[in-house]
């Protein structure tokens, strides 16, 4: 089933160069899982955002393993460097002192029910990913930064311009919303 998707690993030693790369990937997986766990289960929001930054660092490592160093760099730059810092500023500006106080009536069942729903989604998606026979197409193009730039500014230039307009409108809207109500 996985002949083309998953190359075989016959005779790979733990101390060879390939084995060391595999070990680094295991560390990356550990970063992703630990960061996501801290980001969703911690009661203090500062720990949540720290876990989110760790998780995004792990995701950037996974992008590097997926032969996309440019996207990995952008992941570090945008998510870890910009989005996490932005949310950290929001936590510093808009959090009461006591933080997340548990124990109101409506949210008593939301934890176990949310866990059940997410566990079912994870099981279904993993089963689907493991049992589907994915069709592999022949590669055309290299996928390096030069190729990405060419495709981005020729066949995807319209979306590129639209994204810049969306970013402009979003930043102006954010300024207007945050400004309203202040004298």
């Amino acid at each position: 089933m996985q002949s083309a998707i998953c190359q075989s690993a016959a005779g790979m030693s733990f101390f060879s160069a390939q084995g060391f790369v595999g070990l680094i990937f295991l560390v990356t997986i550990g970063l992703i899982i630990a960061g996501a766990f801290v980001a969703t289960t911690s009661t203090r929001l500062v720990r949540c955002i720290s876990g989110l930054a760790v998780c995004f660092t792990g995701v950037a490592g996974a992008y590097y393993f997926l032969l996309a160093p440019f996207v990995a760099m952008m992941q570090m730059l945008i998510y870890v460097g910009a989005v996490s810092i932005l949310i950290a500023f929001a936590i510093m500006m808009a959090t009461p002192e006591e933080g997340d106080t548990p124990g109101k009536k409506i949210t008593r069942f939301s934890g176990p029910l949310g866990f059940a729903v997410s566990a079912m989604a994870f099981a279904a998606l993993s089963l689907l990913a493991a049992t589907t026979d994915w069709q592999v197409f022949a590669r055309e193009g290299s996928g390096d930064m030069h190729h990405i730039g060419m495709v981005l500014l020729t066949s995807h230039s319209m979306v590129f311009e639209l994204v810049s307009i969306v970013l402009l409108v979003a930043i102006m809207g954010a300024l207007v919303i945050a400004r309203r109500g202040r004298d």
């Binding site: 790979m12 390939q18 790369v21 595999g22 996974a62």
Partner: peptide, 14 residues
């Protein structure tokens, strides 16, 4: 276990 980074399923499960 050391060849997980060459498998599509690993990334999909992640």
């Amino acid at each position: 276990l050391l060849n997980l980074y060459n498998c599509l399923t690993t990334y999909l499960v992640l």
